[in-house]
Amino acid sequence: MLVVNHVSKSYGKFEALKDINLEFSNGVYGLLAPNGAGKTTLIKMLTTLIFPSSGEILYNGTNIARLGEKYRELLGYLPQDFGYYKNYSPRQFLSYLGALKGMDKKVVNKRMDELLKLVALEDVATKKMKKFSGGMIQRVGIAQAMLNDPKILILDEPTAGLDPKERVRFRNLLSELARDRIVILSTHIVSDVESIANEIIMIKDKQVLYKGSIDEICKKIAGMVYETSIPYEQANMFKKEVFSLSEKQEDGLLKIRFISKKTPEPTWTAVKPNLEDVFLYVYRDDIQESGAS
C-alpha cells in the first residue's frame, strides 16, 4: 500500500501542492484535474524524481526515498513528456530499459514480444523510432512502463495522442492489469478515467478536493443537473441564470444541459450527473479564467 502523508511541495516560493493525504491500494486511480493543478508534481514525487518539501510518502510503511532501488524496482512509469532515443528501435529501447530495470535478458525478450503485440507495434518492432508518429511513440512508452510487471504503475497522461481504437485497447489493458497492482493515471480527459478508474482524485487549489468512486463524486451535484430545450433567442438570458454544461442544436431549438440550484421549472428534465458535469462545475472558475486569458 502506498500512502501519501501530509505532503506539500514548493518550487522556490511557489507552492504547487499543499497537505496532500492519499492512500493507494490495488486498483485504478484517476488523477483528474485541469492543466497546472499539480498532477505531474504529485506523480514526480510518487516516482522519487522530486521529493516533498514536507510530509512523506510511504510504501508498506517505509519512506520511498529510503527504499531507493528496491522501490524503483517495483515501479513502472510513463512520463508526460516521454523521451526516447531516436536511433533505437522499440526492441532496442525496451531491452535497454529492461536492463536498467534489473530484469533478466530472457524475461525481457519474452515480455517485450507480448507487450509489443498488446500495443500493436509488432510490425515495426525493429524500425528506428525517429520515423514513428506521436501515437506510436506513446505506445512504446506504455509498453516500457509495463515491462517489468510493476506493482505500481504510474502513467502521466497516457492517452495523449492515441486514436479512439488504441484508447479502448489501452483501457481494457489497464483494467486487466489493475487487479493485482496499483495503477495511477493522470489526465484531464474525463472519458479516459470514467470507464476504468475505481477511484477518482480531484485536485483543486493545491489540495485534494474529492477522492472517491465515480458515483460518490457524481452525488455531489445530484439533483442539480437538468436538460431542456429553448429557442435561440432566449439562450443568452437563460445562460445568465444557470451554469451551462453543454449545448447543442436540435430541431431548431437549443438543447442545453445545465446546473441550477433553483426550483426546477416544469420544462426542465432532471438528469443523472456524470463525471464531466462535476469536472466542469468544480473547475468553473479555472476554466473561465483560462478561457478569458
Partner: peptide, 14 residues
Amino acid sequence: DNRTYELEMTCKYD
C-alpha cells in the same frame, strides 16, 4: 541533457 532522463531516473539502476 536527454529527455529520457526521467525514465532512466526511475529505473532500478539510475
